[in-house]
Amino acid sequence: MPPVHPDPTEVIEAWIPHDARWQAQAREHARHGSERLRLYVTELVRDHRDGARSISDDFDLRTLKAVVEDLQSSGLSDVDWRRVAQALTHPGLR
């Protein structure tokens, strides 16, 4: 039986609400809608930027690389950003 991989939404849902480095910023963006959240997380993962700040810390970059690996080939385009925004703004609701 092949290994089971989480879908892209599950990867982001498991990571961003629980990562203290970016959780507050992500939650703030989620309060303004799923599109703002998508842009913020995409900037983190793809561009290694947290707003105006470039991310250069090795630990942070390794974390972002692990997220990309977990996303596999589908990347961020298949994430249900509404669901991730809900996980950030209303934890425990589904």
Score class of each variant (00 low, 15 high):
Met1Asp: 06
Pro3Tyr: 00
Val4Lys: 12
Pro6His: 01
Pro6Ile: 00
Pro6Arg: 04
Pro8Tyr: 00
Thr9Cys: 07
Thr9Asp: 08
Glu10Ser: 15
Glu10Lys: 07
Glu10Gln: 15
Glu10Arg: 13
Val11Ser: 09
Ile12Pro: 14
Ala14Val: 02
Ala14Gln: 14
Ile16Gly: 09
Pro17Arg: 00
His18Thr: 10
His18Leu: 05
His18Met: 01
His18Val: 00
Asp19Gln: 08
Arg21Trp: 02
Arg21Tyr: 11
Trp22Ser: 01
Trp22Cys: 01
Ala24Asn: 08
Ala24Pro: 01
Ala26Lys: 05
Ala26Gly: 10
Ala26Pro: 12
Arg27Phe: 02
Glu28Leu: 15
Glu28Ser: 15
Glu28Val: 09
His29Met: 14
His29Pro: 02
His29Trp: 06
His29Cys: 15
Arg31Met: 11
Arg31Tyr: 06
Arg31Pro: 07
His32Val: 01
His32Glu: 10
His32Ile: 00
His32Gln: 14
Gly33Ser: 05
Ser34Trp: 00
Ser34Gly: 05
Ser34Arg: 08
Leu37Ser: 05
Leu37Asp: 10
Leu37His: 08
Thr42Ser: 15
Thr42Gln: 14
Val45Asn: 06
Arg46Thr: 13
Asp47Leu: 15
Asp47Thr: 12
Asp47Met: 11
His48Ile: 01
His48Asn: 15
His48Trp: 08
Arg49Tyr: 10
Asp50Met: 02
Asp50Leu: 09
Gly51Thr: 05
Arg53Ser: 02
Arg53Gly: 01
Arg53Leu: 04
Ser54Trp: 03
Ser54Met: 01
Ser56Lys: 13
Asp57Ile: 07
Asp57Ala: 12
Asp58Phe: 11
Phe59Val: 13
Phe59Lys: 12
Asp60Pro: 03
Leu61Met: 08
Leu61Ile: 07
Arg62Cys: 10
Thr63Arg: 13
Leu64Glu: 04
Lys65Arg: 12
Val67Ile: 15
Asp70Ala: 15
Leu71Trp: 06
Leu71Cys: 09
Gln72Leu: 10
Gln72Thr: 08
Ser73Met: 09
Ser73Ala: 09
Gly75Ala: 06
Ser77Ala: 12
Ser77His: 04
Ser77Glu: 10
Asp78Glu: 10
Val79Asn: 02
Val79Pro: 07
Trp81Asn: 02
Arg82Met: 10
Arg82Trp: 00
Arg82Ala: 13
Arg83Lys: 11
Val84Lys: 06
Val84Tyr: 02
Val84Asp: 10
Gln86Asp: 06
Gln86Pro: 00
Gln86Tyr: 01
Ala87Arg: 14
Ala87Val: 08
Leu88Asp: 04
Leu88Asn: 05
Pro91Tyr: 09
Gly92Ile: 05
Gly92Val: 06
Leu93Met: 10
Arg94Trp: 02
